[in-house]
Design a protein around this nucleic acid. Structure first.
Lengths: 357, 357
DNA sequence: TTGTATGCGTTATCAA
DNA sequence: TTGATAACGCATACAA
């Protein structure tokens, strides 16, 4: 057995992954030199750097992030908790987060709460155990107690909420201006000549639905129209729920001439019912939804909807995390990023003029 | 300052996370005992176990997965690489993977290749650096060179492909029986009395599209119908592409009376064109797609489609990984799990009888 | 500019 | 049944 190295230990005899120690032995330098060369430290000569890098490539050296993270006390992992990953909204936000994170050298661990606060708590523990550098979360629908977020603060891990957040504004968050979006959509319906505009309202303990309802009321007020409680339906935002709400509205002595729904799926349910009953959309009843889901372009007529800037939301959430990292006392800061919604006007609400391309 | 402990070092004076050493000091036992008590080792007395657990809870001890993983050489992280996370298919598979993984105590790191093999390579490096216990991947559309997967094998990290896989069957994979699904869909169209069934074919270097095309041909053959190349269109599976392909088919001297598309979005494009031209669906042209996307239930008429068992695919992929972990020589095994597709018949293809509920 | 030595928090080996 | 000690791979304080 011819020893290539003059040192006592064989350089990585087994199939074990090659470490910095292996590189050091092979080159006859110290681990410090290797470490610094690879991280482009200024105190290493260009020649040495070159040599180290070449050998690293040749031996197929892969840095062990785990070890680095353990040593530094922080990993390059960030945790993301969403109610569920299916459906356009969260998938798209996660896409935005992941893209931004990867550019900055972070990887994303994804967790689903399944709309259950118990899972949400477990997810948080998992992420903290994984020593993530930060946590980005959209809370589950039944999260009304927020004690579990305190623990994250105590660990000093930056916490960013997006879209859905706990009550009270003392958190870091990226949200859409839901109120403004809802107001725009409702005003648009009013501009089309509608005067009895109904609203499908979502669960009011969630900030997003509360704000959409408020935006709806804002628009009415700006037109001097008193809100009619019989035109505001509590809706679970499913297709069936939308159909049921529409049926109730049609049964009123004085039915609406437009509906603004806090979600797209529900407004699709309404559309289907109207078509079944031979009621014309938008001539008899104009429709507008919220989220700009893919289905808005499949339904006939195409559905007017408020876009939630999902990609931007993801990117902004990561950026906020990133800012918190470098900021002082970040664990107790409370920055809010508010994105501006965009109304897409389509045939379901357009009584005059042509449909925009 | 009253010292609670008789040992020299203060137990976790600073706000630093509490470690096993802290627990050991506090209880006056060794770290070994703590470690074993927490992992429920048989050699620890029930009383000691109880005491350790209580203290751990009281002091809010969080295990450091990083350290454990470093020591054990394997983490409880698994990496998943998909072309993109948006869209029902991959989001749903990821959902299945994440759910199965979490039950087994694993967390999921998600990476997107953006349909680019260069990113795919980078993703693999990242995951290997993170010391993941396994990698689950659906290759990007331009992956034709498979050398980068060799490295994963050399690291001894189990590798599972799902849906899209490299050419050659020498890999671990979970796939849908695309050929069977396509055959079922086409046979269904033939059973409805259609005799000139066209096909929108996807990129033929991908196993999934090649197999769907083959299934289409199988069905024709079983009916003794010779394939007509003019009825097979290369399609990129976008809406526009579907519209364009349909237009070309209608321009034929002898146009088709049915279309089976390897994707749902393209068949929607076809549907829209047919409706614009006043051609009846399914009476004049019957339509069937593949993937059972949400849009199949929004389009009018509802679209017949082949369901890909996305959740099961995710679960099966994780299970396969899990099996490989315990198996011998897993790095070089090549197990294949094949899921059976399910055809959902809807109005777009149903010429006789009523639409199923 | 480079090297030495130590510790991050855990698990495993050995001895008691 | 328990304890002392040595790794895992990397980054840094300090010394040269």
């Amino acid at each position: 057995m011819a020893a290539r190295s003059t040192l006592s230990k064989e350089p990585n005899a087994a199939g074990r992954p090659v470490s910095m120690a292996d590189l050091a032995r092979e080159l006859g330098v110290s681990m410090t030199t290797i470490s610094r060369a690879l991280s482009d430290h200024h105190s290493i000569g260009p020649a040495t750097k070159q040599a180290v890098r070449q050998l690293a490539k040749k031996l197929n050296y892969q840095p062990n992030h785990l070890a680095a993270a353990l040593r530094k006390g922080k990993s390059t992992l960030i945790g993301v908790i969403v109610p569920y990953i299916e459906g356009r909204f969260f998938a798209s936000v996660v896409h935005g987060i992941e893209t931004a994170a990867r550019k900055a050298g972070y990887s994303v661990i994804i967790c689903q709460s399944g709309e259950d606060v118990a899972n949400e708590r477990r997810n948080l523990e998992t992420l903290l155990s994984a020593q993530v550098a930060g946590i980005l979360i959209s809370v589950s629908i039944n999260t009304t107690d927020f004690k579990h977020f305190e623990k994250v603060r105590r660990h000093g891990v930056p916490l960013v909420f997006f879209d859905r957040l706990p009550e009270g504004d003392n958190v870091n968050a990226v949200v859409l201006n839901d109120r403004e979006g809802a107001c725009q959509a409702t005003r648009h319906l009013l501009e089309q000549g509608c005067r009895r505009v109904a609203h499908f309202a979502g669960a009011q303990h969630l900030n997003i639905y509360k704000n959409r309802r408020q935006g709806y009321l804002d628009a009415l007020q700006s037109y001097g129209i008193a809100p009619d409680e019989s035109l505001i339906k509590n809706c679970s935002m499913t297709l069936e729920s939308g159909t049921a709400c529409m049926a109730e509205l049609l049964a009123l002595p004085n039915p609406p001439d437009a509906v603004f729904s806090a979600g797209d799926t529900a407004i699709l349910g309404a559309l289907q019912l109207l078509k079944n009953r031979g009621i014309r959309v938008p001539q008899d009843v104009a429709l507008a939804g919220f989220s700009n889901e893919a289905l808005t372009l499949v339904a006939e007529p195409n559905l007017t909807s408020v876009d939630q800037r999902t990609e931007e939301m993801g990117q902004a959430a990561f950026r906020l995390f990133s800012d918190l990292l470098t900021a002082e006392g970040a664990a107790f800061s409370q920055r809010q990023v508010v994105l501006q919604p965009q109304l897409f006007v389509r045939a379901s609400s357009l009584r005059h003029g042509s449909v925009p391309a």
